[in-house]
Design a protein around this nucleic acid. Sequence first.
DNA 1: ATTTTCTGATTGAACTGTCAATCAAAATGA
DNA 2: TCATTTTGATTGACAGTTCAATCAGAAAAT
Lengths: 222, 222
Amino acid sequence: MDAVSDTVEDTAPPRRKLPRAARRVQLIEATIETIGARGIARTTMGDVAKQAGLSHGLVNFHFQTKDNLLHETLLYLADEFRDNWMEAVAVADPYPAAQLEALLRADFRPEVCTPARLSAWCAFWGEAGSRPLYQQMCGEHDVAYDQQIESLCQSLITAGAYPHISARAARVLRTCSEGVWLDLMMPEPPYDLTEGLTTLMACAQALFPLHFTVLGRIDPAG
Amino acid sequence: MDAVSDTVEDTAPPRRKLPRAARRVQLIEATIETIGARGIARTTMGDVAKQAGLSHGLVNFHFQTKDNLLHETLLYLADEFRDNWMEAVAVADPYPAAQLEALLRADFRPEVCTPARLSAWCAFWGEAGSRPLYQQMCGEHDVAYDQQIESLCQSLITAGAYPHISARAARVLRTCSEGVWLDLMMPEPPYDLTEGLTTLMACAQALFPLHFTVLGRIDPAG
DNA sequence: ATTTTCTGATTGAACTGTCAATCAAAATGA
DNA sequence: TCATTTTGATTGACAGTTCAATCAGAAAAT
């Protein structure tokens, strides 16, 4: 039926009549790329259309307004990030240290940790202060992430008799992770992804020395 | 004739013929407020002028272009933040734990930690990914801050025979501080300034338990 | 034949940057 | 002390540009 759908993007012009959902995703991906390259302030509908190799009328056809396009793009990113860490936790070994390590590593997987995605996410974050809608979405993302971390921290605190407050330990880890993200967002980051992860593990080690080293969790099996 | 000049605007309207430098600062402050309220993307020269209670032609008279206005605003913020933490370190007690605590607390002083300033700084940060100039300025700010922290961390590591790498410990503290900032930027932050600082101190305690508690440094005098 | 997707020209609004005119204050001269 | 000139800060109207959104119609798809 749809022999077209194979080479949807990159160089070859992705000719007409892609299924609705696929076209929307293509345009959202183009939006992420454009925001990553030009920032939100200077991103126009024309830029997005050009990036996708389509006409700008089509962007309005699928998303009605620019505000809506941005909103849906943020939604897409937030869902992607959430799915990513949730799945990482789900497939991790079933003990707290392994799950916490999986959670912390998830945001740095190459699939989600691309320059354009980091940059776009940060751009939305920067605008969040003045846009209640973005604020709410970024906030909700953080809350869910934070709760998951806190629950794991609580398990570790109990297991290791650490003197920490779980909410605070969780916050230290989350903020550290977000800060490393900001560093890596720069086109010429001061350190690479591996060193970023090691920094996070150093943070986990400082909090939970019985369960973590700078290389990651200490396996309970020995 | 000139009965006008007194209260043309609301709060503190320095009417006509202000010296050049003062007027520029007034316009930059108006820019910070506007960016904080509307974000960079939707801030216009007209908005800034209105915020300052002046005509929009005057903004161009003093700053030529919008890009230049934004650039100078970022410069102003970066200088202010740097001066703030440098002075805090300079007046702190002359031992590493006290200086580190002063450094960490500096960014959360009410003078610099206002909603508009946090929000504006974050907005610039969000755009930094796509603007080499912003990138460089934000980067330089971070580098200087990081070097100062690292030097203090190194002193503590030596003093306490901690197993850390100074660069990584410094990075953990800096990223944690930046992450807390991001949290506090939200109009309805998930926790207050005091709790933010306590979180930072908890991070310092995890790294340097001989020198810090969640309340701050442990005074060497006892 | 009908519906859905897509294009590119067009429109109208908003914004930036310019400029001539205005005006307050400082400098100068009486 | 008071009038005159000079300076440069300030205004508001304007020109030119950019951009979001619309729309009529073309091109697939069903």
